[in-house]
Simulated scan of single mutants.
Amino acid sequence: MKTCSIDGCDGPARKRGWCEKHYSRFKAHGDPLKGARSVLPDWCDVEGCAEEPVAKRLCKRHYYAQRRGAPLLPRRPTTCTVDDCQASVHGLGLCKKHYQRQRAQLPPTRICSVEQCANGATVRGWCGMHYQRWRRFGDPEFTPPESVRKCTIEGCVKVTNARGLCNSHYYRWLKYGDPLISKNAPRVRQPVYIFADRICPTCGRSFDPGNSSRRVYCGKRCKPSGRIAGSVNNRRWVEKLGDADGWTCQICRGAIDPELYWPHRWAGSVDHIVPVSDGGTDERSNLRLTHLTCNVARGNSPSPPGA
Rank of each mutant, 00 (worst) to 15 (best):
L180W: 05
P186F: 13
C203M: 08
Y176Q: 15
D197Q: 15
C200L: 01
F207C: 03
D197S: 12
Y176F: 12
K175F: 01
C200N: 01
D208Y: 10
N184H: 15
G177Y: 06
T202W: 00
G210N: 12
C200G: 01
D197H: 15
A185W: 15
P191R: 15
S182M: 12
G210I: 05
V188C: 04
I181H: 05
S206F: 05
W173D: 13
V188Y: 09
R187G: 11
I181Y: 08
C200K: 00
R172G: 01
R189S: 07
L180S: 07
P201H: 02
P186L: 07
P186C: 07
K183A: 11
R198C: 01
F195R: 05
R172K: 11
K183M: 14
S182R: 14
Y176D: 13
G177V: 05
K175R: 10
D208P: 04
D178K: 11
K175T: 09
P179Y: 07
P179K: 06
L174F: 08
L174Q: 12
D178G: 09
P201L: 02
W173L: 08
P186E: 05
P186K: 08
C203S: 06
T202A: 02
I194W: 08
G177S: 06
R172M: 01
S206G: 02
C200Q: 01
Y193I: 03
R198H: 00
V192I: 13
R205W: 10
Q190C: 04
R189T: 09
I181Q: 10
P186N: 11
T202H: 01
T202C: 00
T202F: 00
P191I: 14
Y193V: 03
I199M: 05
L174V: 08
L174I: 10
A185T: 14
Q190G: 10
R198V: 00
N184S: 13
P186Q: 11
I199K: 05
